[in-house]
Structure formats: structure tokens, C-alpha cells
Design a protein around this nucleic acid. Structure first.
Length: 570
RNA sequence: UGGGGCGUCGUCAAGCGGUAAGACACAGGAAUUUGGAUCCUGCAUUCGGAGGUUCGAAUCCUCCCGCCCCAGCCA
């Protein structure tokens, strides 16, 4: 026997499923579900769950449903439902006709509640919220039984009907499961099943004024859909006995099994809906789809591909360890995907004017440049060359530091797919002393970048012909936070925001082929990084690019290492 | 200090009594018309700690330590 198929992932959840399959526990069926509450935009943490649930269904020939877990009308909306549908689809998953809503089960859930009341397992409690909390006890002390705990089934039935009819104000009564006020598991101390909320529901409108709680609704929704394995995050581990209690007391036969795994935490970002809403509402970011956001819509706009995200979700694995994934892994995933897919292009972000003194004025020529160095099938594009060019400011140093081997006075470098040029002088702004123009000569023998005499050059620079360049705005995104764990030790994450998480460059000069770029198109700006055309702000003549991720940069690494040494010496 | 869960490389993560996979990160090198990609090389004598069982323990037992979750009419 060969070792496990390395193309399909394996983890403790799949182990359980395979065991269940062998023992025919669910008649060989596998059914999962992705059950978001539509009260926010899905983020990369949701993607982990989406990939897990849909991935498992696909791997074992099962199904995965998409279910809106909409049991609390405050905060839920159609906008969020739409964002979830759009993003899960974009990730590449298909639930066919199995889009469900917990709110479609309200009537059935109500009947289940009636059944529990009839069995003496649920009661209407008149305690107010404060009293309920007091009666619940603490982590170390048992709770006290509610004085309403032993009402007759008839009385409970009548009261519950009147709750539904809207006869009582919010907060005045709840329906509770009668379990055990002394349970060491606080979840089991007569948990609330229904509360009164006189709030309009985005789907059921004002039809209901009582709404089921998560614990009651979730297990039953799962069983109603024939879910076999109900995967959720670790914080629900305490709730599992309650999940099982409802199903057992209602004598539901094929019972779904809840299995908990660790939610995703990503370094230098924050992945809680509450925190993300805060960023949106405080205006720290431009919205849920701001490219700085770890939301799927933000990442899409930033230029991430679904493939990269899926690969990431597979690479991080699934376990019960509370972990913090290094964002470098995510970045590696996009680079890996975009390295293959993104056409190469030249763009100068911070232009420095270069004049080729021995290149005739008014003359220009075109080079045919491959769109991908390894994949000829991606074709080529024409790039014009002329006497005045732009190169990257960073690619020239009047007094080059050690190990800097780009352009400097007297040095020769190659212009990618162009000519060798040698710097013969600089012109400085008399006011600032800053280099404003570099003068060079070119070697006509080195056309396309080859020297017939075989001489070598240390660097190859990207460039753009000044007269032919198109202008663009480029947004350089970096990590949103300065610290790896912005929530560490209960600190306020907004104190750790990275002030440089967005730098906008307005006078970027791009090769003319980019004038045709359409919103969403992705490119590699050679030697810089991966960029995509912004889908919201790039329109008509106004070109806006977002940086998805930088290229790995050995020079930048050397430089920052140097800085560290300098700091150390201080 | 009640209950539930988790501790294997800087970060993830395999391992399921037979002698520590892999990935990212990091470091070095080769090659290079992207200081990219690629390719080599290195990177846990030891698995939170201490005892014990065993010919043999990351895997079994005992005790201890650390971290996370639970006292919403949120999910």
C-alpha cells in the first residue's frame, strides 16, 4: 500500500469521517454545511470553514449546504446575505439548490419547542435579564432554580403562545430548557431557547416577535437538513452537550455530530466580525471591501485569487490548537499563484528622468517583450523606447552604498529588453540638491539587452519611455497592524494600526500596453510586485492599481538588516 | 478557584509503542536579461515539566506547569 494520497488533505476531522464511513454510521452519507450569520462580510477566517466544509463534501462524495444562520434579526441584512453568496461562489464552491435559511425553519422550530414544553422539558420564565444572570450562578458556584421553573405544561403552553402573539414586552419573558441549574457546564443551566424581540426581520418581516437562540436552532437546522457532521469552531465545545440534549429530548433519530476545530488567526490582522465592523464604522478603512481588509471582498479587490486562498486554507491545516498563522504564508500563496498567471509589465512607481545623450532626438523604436519569462504562450507586447525615459528613483544612487549594484555615476546597467546604458552625469535641483535627471549613453550594439562582446552588467532595470508612458495612481498596501497580534493582552487593536498600511502614489508612469487594462486585471510589475486594476476607482482614463503583494526583495532585506545593525550600534 | 479544550522547530503541522514528515520563515550557495522565479544546502539527539510502565515512549500511566473557552434574552 502506498502512503496516503498527498493530493487530498488529511486531518482529525477527516479521520473521524473516514471512521464513520467504514462503520456506516450515517449509511455512508456525508453532509456538511457552511452556516454563517448574515451580519457581516465573510473574511479569510470564514474561508477556512468554507474550504473545510465544501472540501470534505467533495472529497467524500457528499454535499455541503449554504445556510444563513439568521436567528437574531438585529444586525442581519440582505446586503450581508448577498456578500456571502457572492464570496463563497467566488471562492469556487457550489451549493446547487441547497441555499437554506434558519428563518425558513421558524415554524418547525416553534413546533419542536411546543413538544419540549409538552414533555415538561421547557418552561416560560418571567425573570428579567438581570435576575436570570443572578440565578445562573458563577463559574464556581451553582445557580438557583427559577421560581417559574415548575409551571404546568398547560400554563407554559398558553404563555408561550401569548409570547408569540406579542402580548408581552421584550425582556419580560423567555422560554427556557429545563436542564440543570447546578451543572458545572454553565451552558446547561436552563439555557434560553426563545426570547422576545420586537424587531423587523430582513426576511420574515414582522411575522415573528420571538426568535430562537443559536443552541436550539442550530442542532435542529442541522438535523432538518440531514447534516451528518456539523463542523464549528472551538468556542462551541462547551455547547456540544446542549446540542446533543435537544436532539435527544426530541427523539431525533439520525443525529448530526458536532465537531469543533480551531478558528483561523492571522498575524498582523484581526479576524473578528466585531473588530472588522469597528474598522468600517470608525472610517479606519473605506468599507468592507477596502483592500486593506481581510474580508474576501477586500482581498479580491486587492488582487488575491480564489486559488491562492484555497491553497492557503489547505496549507494551514485543521487542528484543535489555538494558533496564529504567519501572514507570510498567505503572501507566499498569492505569489505562487500569481507568479504563474500574471503577465509581466514595466511600471515606474517613483519616476526619475533619464536622458540618453547619444540617442537621436525624435527617434523611437519598439521592442517585442515576452509577457512571461517562462511561458511563451502568454505572448508578447510592444514596448517603445526613446531618448527620454523614466527609471525607478531607488534604482539610482549618486553615492551607492555597499552591495548596491544598480545605476550610479560611471556604472553600466541593462535596461530590461532594451540597451545597456552608462551613467555619465547627473543634474540636481539647485533648491533641494536632489538628483532630478540622470544623463547616460547607450551602447547601440546591446540591443534587446545582449552584449555581443559578452560583457556582463550587474543589474537589469525596468524603465518606461517618457513620451509614451501612461499615468496611473498606484496604491501600495501593507499590513494593517504594526504588531503580530493586535489583540494580545486585551489591548485596543486600533492603537496598533500601521500608519503606513496605505501609501498612494500619484505620478506613476506605466508602459503604454497598460492603457488597455480592465478593472480586476492582474499584472506583475517587474521587480516590484503584483498589482491589479482597482474595480471601484479605475474608470475610463483614470487608471488605479492596487498592490496585492510585493515581490520578494533581497536588496530590501539586506538594507533592513543594515538598519538593524545601525540601530544596534546606537 | 467549577467545567471544557489544547501544549511537537521562530510560525503552522504530521506522527496513533519501533527510534521526530512537510510547509512557511530564516541562513548560506548555484544559476539568472526581474536583487523575482528556479535549484541545491543547513535548520527539533528531542516532543511543556517531572516521575513511572516497557527491550523500546512524542505516543501508555501518574502528578505538576502553561495557554485558550464558558457566567449575552450574540453566534
Amino acid at each position: 500500500m502506498t502512503s496516503a494520497d498527498s493530493s487530498s488533505p488529511s486531518d482529525f476531522i477527516r479521520d473521524i469521517i473516514e471512521k464513520d464511513l467504514r462503520s456506516s454510521k450515517h449509511q455512508g452519507r456525508v453532509a456538511t454545511r457552511f452556516p454563517p450569520e448574515p451580519n457581516g462580510y465573510p473574511h479569510i477566517g470564514h474561508a477556512k470553514s468554507v474550504c473545510l466544509n465544501f472540501g470534505i463534501a467533495a472529497q467524500y462524495g457528499g454535499v455541503c449546504n449554504l445556510r444563513m444562520d439568521d436567528t437574531d434579526p438585529s444586525g442581519e441584512s440582505t446586503e450581508y446575505v448577498e456578500s456571502i453568496i457572492r464570496d463563497v461562489k467566488w471562492l469556487g464552491f457550489d451549493w446547487q439548490d441547497r441555499l437554506y435559511y434558519a428563518s425558513d425553519y421558524y415554524e418547525k422550530l416553534y413546533q419542536y419547542a411546543i413538544e419540549l414544553i409538552g414533555a415538561g422539558k421547557a418552561y416560560v420564565c418571567d425573570l428579567n435579564p438581570d435576575e436570570i444572570r443572578e440565578y445562573r450562578g458563577t463559574l464556581t458556584e451553582p445557580g438557583k432554580e427559577s421560581p417559574y421553573r415548575n409551571r404546568s405544561a398547560e400554563e407554559n403552553m398558553a404563555l408561550f403562545e401569548r409570547m408569540r402573539a406579542g402580548e408581552f414586552p421584550e425582556g419580560s419573558r423567555v422560554l427556557r430548557a429545563k436542564i440543570d441549574m447546578a451543572s458545572p457546564n454553565v451552558t446547561l443551566r436552563d439555557p434560553i431557547m426563545y426570547r422576545i424581540k420586537k424587531v423587523n426581520h430582513y426576511r420574515t418581516g414582522d411575522k415573528w416577535c420571538i426568535y430562537p437562540m443559536y443552541d436550539f436552532a442550530h442542532c435542529l437546522s442541522d438535523s432538518l437538513e440531514g447534516i451528518t457532521h456539523s463542523l464549528c469552531t472551538l468556542e462551541f465545545e462547551n455547547n456540544r452537550p446542549l446540542y446533543d440534549w435537544f436532539l435527544k429530548e426530541l427523539k431525533i433519530h439520525p443525529r448530526p455530530q458536532q465537531i469543533e476545530f480551531a478558528r483561523l488567526n492571522l498575524s498582523y490582522t484581526v479576524l473578528s466580525k466585531r473588530r472588522l465592523i469597528e474598522l468600517v464604522e470608525k472610517g479606519v478603512v473605506g468599507g468592507w471591501d477596502d483592500p486593506q481588509m481581510p474580508t474576501l471582498s477586500g482581498m479580491r479587490r486587492r488582487g488575491y485569487t480564489p486559488e491562492a486562498i484555497r491553497n492557503f486554507c489547505e496549507r494551514i491545516g485543521v487542528s484543535k490548537n489555538d494558533s496564529l498563522i504567519d501572514i507570510a504564508l498567505l503572501e507566499d500563496c498569492v505569489r505562487e499563484d500569481l507568479n504563474e498567471k500574471a503577465p509581466r509589465v514595466m511600471a515606474v512607481l517613483r519616476p526619475l528622468r533619464v536622458v540618453i545623450d547619444n540617442y537621436p532626438e525624435g527617434r523611437s523604436e519598439e521592442f517585442d517583450c515576452p509577457c512571461h519569462p517562462k511561458n511563451p504562450e502568454m505572448g508578447s507586447r510592444k514596448v517603445p523606447f526613446s531618448r527620454v525615459l523614466y527609471i525607478e528613483r531607488d534604482d539610482f544612487h549618486e553615492n551607492p552604498p555597499k552591495k548596491f549594484f544598480r545605476l550610479a555615476p560611471g556604472r553600466e546597467v541593462r535596461l530590461r529588453y532594451g540597451y545597456f546604458i552608462r551613467c555619465i552625469g547627473v543634474i540636481k535641483d539647485p533648491a533641494t540638491g536632489e538628483v532630478s535627471e540622470v544623463h547616460c549613453t547607450y551602447d547601440p550594439e546591446t540591443k534587446s539587452g545582449f552584449a555581443p562582446d559578452g560583457r556582463k552588467v550587474e543589474a537589469t532595470l525596468h524603465w518606461v519611455a517618457a513620451a509614451h508612458a501612461v499615468s496611473a495612481e498606484v496604491r501600495l498596501y501593507d499590513r494593517l497592524y504594526r504588531v503580530a497580534d493586535p489583540l494580545a493582552e486585551g489591548s485596543d487593536h486600533t492603537e496598533h494600526l500601521n500608519p503606513k498600511s496605505l501609501e498612494t502614489l500619484h505620478s506613476c508612469r506605466l508602459e503604454p500596453s497598460l492603457a488597455q487594462a480592465a478593472p480586476g486585471d492582474r499584472f506583475q510589475f517587474e521587480r516590484i510586485g503584483y498589482f491589479c486594476v482597482d474595480t471601484a476607482d479605475s474608470k475610463g482614463q483614470r487608471l488605479v492599481f492596487n498592490r496585492t503583494v510585493t515581490l520578494r526583495d533581497a536588496w530590501a532585506r539586506l538594507r533592513s538588516r543594515g538598519e538593524k545593525i545601525v540601530d544596534f550600534e546606537k
